[in-house]
Simulated assay, not measured.
Amino acid sequence: MTERELEILALLKRNPLIAQQSIAEKLGISRSAVAGHIMNLTHKGVIKGKGYILAEARYTVVIGGANMDILGCPVGPLQIGDSNPGSVTCSPGGVGRNIAENLARLGSDTHLISALGKDTYGQMIMEQCQQAGIDMKACIELNDYSTSTYLSVLDSDSDMHVAINDMAILERLSVAVLKSQEEIIRRADLIVVDANLSAESLEYILSNFSDRPIFVDTVSCAKAKKLAPFLSSIHTLKPNLKEAEQLSGMTITDACELPALANWFHSQGVKRIFLSMGSDGVFYSDEGVQALVPAIATQMVNANGAGDAFLAGLAHGWIQGWTTEESTKFAMGAAVVALSHIATINPNMSEISVKRVIKESLC
Rank of each mutant, 00 (worst) to 15 (best):
K13V: 03
R14H: 04
R14M: 08
N15T: 11
N15Q: 13
N15I: 08
P16N: 12
P16G: 03
P16M: 06
P16H: 06
L17A: 08
I18T: 03
A19F: 11
A19H: 11
Q21E: 12
Q21F: 07
S22R: 06
S22E: 14
S22P: 02
S22K: 08
S22D: 13
I23D: 01
I23R: 00
I23L: 14
I23G: 01
I23H: 01
A24V: 11
A24F: 13
E25T: 07
E25S: 10
E25H: 10
K26C: 10
K26E: 15
K26I: 15
L27W: 01
L27S: 02
L27N: 02
L27F: 13
L27I: 08
L27H: 02
G28N: 07
G28V: 06
G28L: 08
I29W: 04
I29T: 12
S30I: 11
S30H: 06
S30F: 06
R31S: 04
R31A: 04
R31C: 03
R31Q: 07
S32Q: 13
S32L: 14
S32N: 11
A33P: 02
A33I: 03
A33C: 03
A33R: 05
V34Y: 00
A35P: 06
H37V: 11
I38P: 01
M39H: 06
N40P: 03
N40F: 01
L41G: 00
L41C: 04
L41R: 00
L41E: 00
T42Q: 07
T42K: 09
T42H: 02
T42G: 05
T42V: 04
H43W: 07
H43S: 12
K44D: 14
G45W: 00
G45S: 07
G45V: 03
V46K: 09
V46T: 15
I47C: 01
I47M: 01
I47V: 14
K48R: 10
K48H: 09
K48T: 14
G49Q: 09
G49L: 15
G49D: 13
G49S: 15
G49W: 09
K50D: 09
K50P: 03
K50T: 05
K50N: 09
K50S: 11
G51F: 09
G51M: 12
Y52H: 15
Y52D: 00
I53W: 04
I53E: 14
I53H: 10
L54M: 05
L54R: 02
A55V: 08
A55E: 13
E56R: 10
E56L: 05
A57M: 06
R58A: 13
R58C: 07
R58L: 10
R58G: 14
Y59A: 05
T60W: 01
T60A: 10
T60N: 05
T60C: 11
V61Y: 02
V61C: 10
V61F: 04
V61S: 03
